[in-house]
Design a protein around this nucleic acid. Structure first.
Lengths: 153, 153
DNA sequence: TTCCCTGCAAAGGATTTGCATACAA
DNA sequence: TTGTATGCAAATCCTTTGCAGGGAA
């Protein structure tokens, strides 16, 4: 079971299949495997990463276009979240399983640390209200040098 | 004089030329005009926007590759800052004249509002320390619907 | 049978690079 | 003169799209 979660892969997948069906869409091994890779992996993965892992782990072929289409669908359904990181060529994706959080990235080694701060969330809401905005989402990235990389310098 | 500033364009440009020379680089009308466009403009501009404005306003030709090269140089020198916005195809740039601030973007019309919150800055520093990071920079984007677009719905 | 989904290859769009020429000092 | 900067075109890289074939229900 994925760390910190109370849902198993089977339960999760069953829920997903139900959602897909309820939208009048079809299930497919490609969709299932992309989701499984993201479920099993604790890192943030790019479309290429996912394609490679699906091929390696599940020993099937999958076109990169299919991966992008599946990622777009999953993001649309709010099942995954894509994040853009300065200095990274491509977007990376993570499951929306755990509650909302932001990211801190090491500019040396690319390590990604997740964090959450209730105060920041509150302030963002205030800033939006002050400016007459109806807040929909936000994206906060901190960039710095992690402990390991500081020591190696 | 640019809003909220105590430096004129001439002073600013003089300083820039000095910096360029001190680095052993050459001055050029292209560099001067790109900087002038950013100095005069209150919006955030893409490389294409800048190329177009330089051509229109100053009636010279400028290759898009040159614009990108100049923007990279200016960003390297910390004179400008490029920001990536979800849903925008290309990076946009702004002068680093005013103090640090973050951005809130309307997902309907693309309007960009700048804001600053000392509390957020403080918290970011704390989060970094807690995780052993040496903080270098951050990027915080709020996405929502601005007052105008809410009314038009 | 009827859509939906996939793989492949081609297309797109932003940005970068190679190279010959033009320019600044 | 000498190295730097530019413009053009070609090349990259990530992502999207068109299309014909394969698959689910």
């Amino acid at each position: 079971m994925k760390k910190g979660l109370t849902i198993t892969y089977d339960e999760y997948m069953l829920k997903f299949k139900g959602l897909i069906k309820s939208l009048g869409l079809n299930n497919s091994v490609q969709r299932e495997y992309v989701l499984k890779i993201l479920f099993d992996c604790d890192n943030h993965l790019s479309a290429e990463d996912i394609a490679k892992k699906v091929k390696d782990v599940h020993n099937i072929n999958i076109g990169i276009a299919t991966v992008y289409r599946i990622l777009a669908l999953l993001e649309e359904l709010n099942i995954i979240k894509g994040i853009s990181i300065d200095g990274f060529e491509s977007k990376v994706y993570e499951l929306n399983l755990t509650s909302h959080h932001d990211h801190m990235v090491c500019v040396e080694c690319g390590k990604i640390v997740e964090f959450y701060d209730a105060e920041v969330e509150k302030i963002q809401e205030l800033v939006a209200i002050e400016n007459g905005f109806k807040l929909q989402s936000h994206n906060m990235m901190l960039y710095g040098i992690c402990k390991d990389c500081q020591e190696h310098e």
